[in-house]
């Protein structure tokens, strides 16, 4: 039972309540850094670290933090983790850090992270909070990667810098420029809408068939 509960928290972030595709949170880093798959993954990993770390701390201290100043406390905890992530990336992968530029410090203002602290981590026990953070940041990473991969394949004809299509491919440059980010995410959301439409239709059909057979 206990295991099921935490598994449930984990899986809901990846698909059913996916932070990007379903809740439309954390859009700024989502669109800004997904012009190549490798940048998207670096950003996803940094967010992963910050979200899991701060969820763990917030939920451990949830009985100590006074209600009135909780938002400021959350933000300071998040900012600390972001500073750690910033300097770690600078030391390990300076090239990626340079490309992501100001968007690493901007993880602080990612509404996804503050939202999870407020809605989940500050109310539930540590174990569930960490599972929730793992699921949410996993879902975020997945969304970042799919957007980054699509944009890099279309805009550069490559994935992780490896050319896929040979010499004759004419890169669709607009896809790695800002408008491409908006358009790609729009089309992906459209696909999700369509999926939901079809599912609702199917469920209605099933319900109608059941009523008919009674």
């Amino acid at each position: 039972m206990k295991k099921n509960e935490s598994y449930e928290e984990f899986i809901k972030g990846i698909w059913r309540d996916n932070p990007v595709f379903v809740q439309v949170l954390g859009m700024c880093p989502m669109l800004a850094v997904t012009n190549s798959a490798i940048n998207a993954i670096a950003m996803g990993m940094a967010t992963f670290f910050v979200l899991v770390g701060s969820s763990f701390l917030v939920s451990s201290f949830r009985n100590v933090i006074p209600k009135q100043v909780r938002i400021s406390c959350f933000i300071i905890i998040i900012a600390t983790f972001v500073t750690i992530a910033d300097y770690t990336l600078l030391a390990l992968v300076p090239k990626v850090h340079k490309e992501l530029g100001a968007f690493i410090p901007l993880i602080v203002a990612n509404c996804l992270i503050l939202g999870r602290q407020e809605a989940f981590a500050s109310r539930y026990p540590t174990k569930l909070a960490v599972m929730d953070a793992l699921g949410m940041s996993g879902g975020f990473l997945l969304a970042l990667f799919s957007l980054g991969a699509v944009r890099e394949i279309l805009g550069d004809g490559a994935l992780f810098g490896v050319k896929l299509f040979g010499e004759n491919f004419e890169p669709w440059v607009i896809m790695i420029l800002p408008p491409g980010g908006f358009l790609t995410l729009g089309v992906i959301l459209l696909f999700f809408n369509w999926f939901k439409f079809k599912k609702d239709e199917f469920l209605e059909d099933v319900a109608a068939a059941e009523r008919g057979s009674d």
Partner: peptide
């Protein structure tokens, strides 16, 4: 009805962004 909502807003924003380029 399918495109209404965020999907359409994003596509509008994409076209605006192209204009600003």
């Amino acid at each position: 009805a399918l495109i209404k909502g965020t999907a359409m807003n994003l596509i509008i924003a994409g076209i605006l962004s192209m204009a600003f380029m």
